[in-house]
Write a protein that binds this DNA or RNA. Sequence first.
RNA 1: CGGGGUGUGGCGCAGUUUGGUUUAGCGCGCUUGCUUUGGGAGCAAGAGGUCGGAGGUUCAAAUCCUCUCACCCCGACCA
Length: 480
Amino acid sequence: MEKKTEFVEAIVDKSKDFSRWYTDVVVKAQLADYSPIKGCMVIRPYGYALWEKIQSLLNARIKATGHQNAYFPLFVPEGLLAREAEHIEGFSPEVAWVTEAGSEKLEERLAIRPTSEAIICSMYAKWIDSWRDLPILINQWANIVRWERVTRLFLRTTEFLWQEGHTAHCTEKEAEEEALKMLGVYKDFIENDLAIPVLTGEKTEREKFAGALRTYSLEALMADGKALQTGTSHNLGQHFAKVFNITFQDMDEKRKYVWQTSWGVSTRLIGAIIMTHGDDSGLVLPPKIAPVQVIIIPIWGREEEKEIVASRVEEVERLLKAAYEVEVDWRSEYTPGWKFNEWELKGVPLRLEIGPKDVAKKQVVLVRRDTREKEFVSEEKVARRVGVLLDEIQADLFKRAKKFRNDNTRPASRIDEMEAILSEHRGFILASWCGSPDCEEKVKEKTMATIRCIPLGKRQAGKCVVCGKRGWAVYFSRAY
RNA sequence: CGGGGUGUGGCGCAGUUUGGUUUAGCGCGCUUGCUUUGGGAGCAAGAGGUCGGAGGUUCAAAUCCUCUCACCCCGACCA
């Protein structure tokens, strides 16, 4: 233990300095690095591989629910962005503008999209004319720029990658169903594939998306007890339809405005994975999104041993490659111990060791990343055992995260009780709120906690933690 | 944008208080060679910095002064 800190590659303890730990993991596991541009990061191959996993798994779900991918421009003319008053007001502090091209000043400056509602709505107005044109169900994978004052790797960067769905429907009911459907798709994806438990619910007026009628969100609890919004789904109502004049003629021959939704998740999810599952040794990746699921470490001493080991390693590799993401670490300049540490830092779910002793016994050594449990498995059973273990790790990570979330969700009936809980534990607090922005603000002032979401479904009655009037249960937390 | 902190080879740091024997030093990493390889290997020989940037004070600046940039932490704002 003492020795551990002497190594440059060592990362700071999670419990000692969570922020520092987080940055250490991101940089040292080579997920991302700081770039010469303020607030912008470079996503390195290992981090980008994670994003590609997220993309492919989520993309499949987005398509399975009937959406198509498209691509809209990076630029939004000021006139378009400014049409929806609440929208521009909400985003203007963080919009980057292009004002010149070459040596010429532009007549109308162009916003670099902070989100694409405006540019997409301008096209929908063109494409929609009849009820037969609806619904429009389009998604795009894109980059976004928001000039944030304070940035953190993956959690908040000036430029980030995301997916944004934009749909238009005939009726309010359809739009509402769509917004909730996508919230469900996200929940399914984040819980099943990323193994991160999330609370879902509606945002308050103060927290909702600029220009939306209603915003739904997914809220996860990070290991330091702060909440992280992992995705949003908005029912835009007819706000944008009215200012962009997106109308259609309905079956009843009347001209009507469409009802819209938009929804998105971003590279921030990678931050959520790190802060939910990681430990003092670094990343811990859920098998379903691990770019490398099994790392094989060959161990040898003398040259003859290397040959014997190599042939076994190649056999096992071939066997496992059929079903899993497998890599072999053949580097001879590092000792096995060094490799163990490095791959643990990178969060690979399973390590498979093959050395001379194993060859002699016709076995391999399997070690789980999450629990570090070691087991010896005979060669003929390796493939099946790897599958079982990966499934177990996936399930256990979710279980553990959920237990943590539940253990750190506490009820409170008065604001001083909230303060006490937050000063000691942080986490979610389930408490009642009367619905007034003043009471919401007062909680924030006194506890730094905000309403993360109002649970969906039947509202649970109670007395407001601030004013004592009739209200209903909502989740509070300090948040990223 | 407010409060605090940090910038010295690739990384982590010492040196800055009290300018000058420091040719700017140490650990890790890197290169080459040999020996190693079951929890961060050993020896040997090498390469690499002008001290975030600009200006100033001085015979002399990593060290003092001014400005500036970047990053980190804590707030206010946001995915």
